[in-house]
Design a binder for these strands. Structure first.
Lengths: 116, 116
DNA sequence: GGCACTGATGCGCAGATGCGCATGCGTCGC
DNA sequence: GCGACGCATGCGCATCTGCGCATCAGTGCC
């Protein structure tokens, strides 16, 4: 009843990183090798490998050998689906903020006397 | 196109902690004061206050003064909805693992000769 | 104004994180 | 077998986190 929070915190921790988040989304589109991922993101290979090791330990991605390459893919589409949902919510928030800043005096609080 | 990852990583970072995750779910049920939250979770008040400060900075919760108490509530239900989705996915994973471990010799790999 | 109560802030420390770098391990072609 | 290739691992360092602790700030009551 409480360890589910620990488990989810672990998964969230691995996703709480811009690089890993981008990796997850790239892998959601199509499985990839370590080298390809490193090229796509302009990162050092050992760095990519470390990130992938973390994600694999958290059960976010799966590794599969293919010749002398290793192909990584998402372990659970639902996890990334949840991420997409959150990203959509944040995008809405950004859009709302942008609208407010572009028209600051458009509708200057029509019911400003509502409170107090 | 890339800073959305940074933003989401920040939000995920604040949620990537078992205590804060539990706080978020408690606040999702009903708004609470700092002291009440500290009681519910058996945590020190300064500690709860720090966690709430982080979540407020990330835009996950909102603070509202009510007399000399301060009531915290969720800023965006969609964020926690995404968390619930992820938690459900993890719960399914746990259930699956539990089923496998409780009946280890039920169907002992019927096609075990499949590889090698 | 003084006091009690509620919450925020500063400080210090132990542990975790992200990265570059060099190196080890497994696989394929010769 | 040996070198080349693809990936993993170990190490060191700068930085960040989470926590306990003491203390400061805002509010209501007398």
């Amino acid at each position: 009843m409480d360890q589910i929070y620990e488990l989810q915190a672990d998964v969230l921790k691995t996703l709480a990183n811009a690089r890993r988040l981008e990796m997850a989304h790239l892998l959601a589109e199509e499985p990839m090798t370590v080298g390809h991922l490193a090229d796509c993101m302009s990162l050092a290979q050992p760095n990519v490998s470390q990130h992938l090791a973390l994600m694999r330990a958290a059960g976010v991605v799966l590794a599969e050998r293919d010749g002398r390459e290793i192909r990584y893919r998402l372990a659970d589409p639902d996890i990334i689906a949840a991420c997409r949902l959150m990203r959509a919510a944040l995008q809405r928030r950004l859009t709302r903020l942008a609208e407010v800043s572009t028209r600051p005096a458009d509708v200057p609080s029509p019911v400003s006397a509502e409170h107090r």
